[in-house]
Amino acid sequence: MEVKVEVGLSKGLENIMNRFISAIEGAGTSGIILNADQGRPVNAVAQEVKTEPVTKVESVSDVEMAKPVEEPNEEDTDEDINYPALRKEIKKLGIKLVQAKKQSEVKALTSKYGYSKMNELPDDKLVQYLEELKEIKNG
Rank of each mutant, 00 (worst) to 15 (best):
I81H: 05
E52M: 09
L34M: 12
V57S: 01
V98R: 15
D124C: 00
K112G: 02
L13N: 11
E71G: 12
E132F: 04
S61N: 05
S61F: 02
K117H: 10
Q103W: 05
R40A: 09
K91L: 06
Q47W: 04
A23I: 14
E74H: 03
Q47R: 10
E52N: 14
K134D: 00
Y115T: 05
N119Y: 07
G94T: 14
E79A: 09
K92F: 09
V63C: 00
G94K: 08
Q38C: 08
K134G: 01
K11T: 12
L13Q: 12
T29V: 10
K96E: 14
E48F: 06
N15T: 13
I81L: 08
Y113K: 06
Y129H: 02
I16K: 14
P122G: 00
K91A: 06
E89P: 09
E79T: 03
N35K: 01
L34Y: 12
V57T: 01
M118K: 12
K88G: 07
L86S: 06
T110K: 01
L34T: 10
V7F: 12
N35M: 01
K92V: 09
I24E: 10
N73W: 11
L130K: 09
N119V: 01
N18E: 04
I33K: 11
V106D: 03
K11Y: 14
M17G: 00
A36I: 11
K96H: 13
A27K: 15
E75F: 13
V7A: 14
E79Q: 07
G31V: 12
G114M: 04
K67Q: 09
